[in-house]
Design a binder for these strands. Structure first.
Lengths: 205, 205
DNA sequence: CAAATAATCAAATGTAAATTTGATTATAGA
DNA sequence: TCTATAATCAAATTTACATTTGATTATTTG
C-alpha cells in the first residue's frame, strides 16, 4: 500500500524564513501571502498546504525565532563564565541573530504587536518573550550579587538593553561601517560600562 | 459675499492624535480609516475632508510628532547646561513624549517603516529623523570634547540610546511600578554611567 | 508499472477596507 | 434673513487581499 510520498519540494523552514523576511519588511498586515509565496517561488494558494493561515504562519515564525535565540542565550547563561562575559556573549548572540538569520529575530521583535490582537496565541508569545527577558535579568542580577556590577533597577535595565538590541535591526545595513560583531561589541561595551561599580570612595575625610 | 464659514467642528489636531493612537495600536496597515474616524466621532468618509488619504494622514502624524519632539530637544541642546544635564533632559523629553502625548511619538517610531514604501515621502521623514538624531549626537560629542564623557563610537551610541528610548513605548503601562519621570531618570542614569570617564590610572608602576 | 497522495497551480470566492459620490445640515458673513 | 460653503453622513464603488476549489503534476512505494 503506497503511502507517504514527496520529500518536501519546498521545506517548511524556507517558508518560515520567507515569511519572516516579508513580515519584517512590511509588517504583519502589510505582508501578503502572495509576496511570501513568491519569495519561495510558490503561489499564494500553495502556502495553504504548509500552513493553515497567515496567522498560523506568523505564530510559527515567532515561535521558531524565539525558541532559537532563547536556546542560545540559555546556554550562555548556564555557563560558568563571569557575568560580564555572559552579558557580552548574549549581546553578540542577540545582535548576530538579528543580522544573520536577519528576519526571524527581527520579525519576532516587531510583529509581537500584531499578535496581541489574537488572544489565544498571545499568551504563548508573551510567555516565551518573558522567558528570554528572564535570562537577561538573571545575568544582571548575578553580576550585582557578585559585586561585579553596580546595583541598578534590573527591570528597567533589561528593557533598556532589549530596546537597544532590537533597534539594531532597524538601522543595520550590510556592508556598513562596522560588522555585526563590531556593533555588538560596541553595544556590549556601553552596557558593561554602565554597570561598572562606582569607584570606591577612598577620599580621606 | 459670504465666505469662510464653520469654525472647524473637529480640529485637525484631534484627528492627528486619533490617527497616531490607532496607528500605534494596530500599525499603519492594520489601522482602518473607520477606526480612526470613530475615535473622533466621525465616519470614515468624513476624514477625507481633512486629509486626502490614509497615507497623507500618516505623513502628517509623523511630521507633527517629529517636529514637536525635535523642537523640544533643540531647545535643550542649545542651552548652556553641561552635557550630562542636557543628556538627562533629552531623555526626559523623549520618554515623556512617548508616554504623555503617547501616541504621536510612538507612532513616529514604528510606522517609519510603512513610509519607506512610499518613495517621495520617505526622504522628508528620513531627513527629519536624522536631524533629531543629530541633536543627540551633538550632545554626546560635546561631552566627549569637554572630557565629561569617555570617548565612544558616537554613531553606535546614539542608535543604542534611541533604541532604548523608543522601546519604552512598547512596555510602558499607565500605573506601573514607576512613573514616566522615574523611568526616564533610570534610563538616563544608565547611559550617563556608560559615559563616565574611565578612572584615571593612579596605580604606581 | 500503478495506485495513492503530496505539492502545486490557475482561477474562483468572499470580504474587509479605502476611497468616491451625492445628499443633508449647519454656520459665517452679507 | 439669505447664500455660499464647510462639515458631515449614508450608501455606493473599487480594490486588494485571504482563503477555497478543482484540476494537474510528481513522486513514493508496493
Amino acid at each position: 500500500m503506497p503511502r507517504k510520498p514527496a520529500e518536501q519540494t519546498v521545506q517548511p523552514d524556507a517558508i518560515l524564513k520567507a515569511a519572516a523576511t516579508v513580515f519584517y519588511r512590511k509588517g504583519y498586515h502589510g505582508a501578503t501571502m502572495a509576496e511570501i509565496a513568491a519569495e519561495v517561488h510558490l503561489t499564494a494558494g500553495s502556502l495553504y498546504h504548509h500552513f493553515p493561515s497567515k496567522e498560523d504562519l506568523l505564530c510559527a515564525v515567532l515561535d521558531h525565532g524565539l525558541t532559537q535565540i532563547t536556546r542560545s542565550v540559555r546556554a550562555v547563561v548556564n555557563s560558568a563564565d563571569p557575568p560580564a562575559e555572559k552579558l557580552r556573549a548574549i549581546v553578540q548572540i542577540h545582535v548576530l541573530s538579528e543580522i544573520e538569520h536577519v528576519n526571524i529575530a527581527a520579525a519576532v521583535i516587531f510583529e509581537g504587536r500584531a499578535l496581541l490582537e489574537m488572544p489565544g496565541v498571545r499568551d504563548q508569545y508573551v510567555r516565551q518573550r518573558d522567558t528570554l527577558e528572564g535570562l537577561y535579568r538573571q545575568v544582571v542580577e548575578e553580576g550585582i550579587a557578585a559585586g561585579d556590577f553596580r546595583p541598578v533597577d534590573v527591570g528597567i535595565f533589561v528593557k533598556t538593553l532589549f530596546g537597544a538590541l532590537n533597534w539594531v535591526s532597524l538601522w543595520y545595513r550590510e556592508g556598513g561601517r562596522l560588522t555585526g560583531r563590531e556593533i555588538a561589541d560596541e553595544i556590549a561595551g556601553t552596557f558593561l560600562a554602565a554597570l561598572r561599580p562606582l569607584p570606591a570612595d577612598d577620599t580621606p575625610r
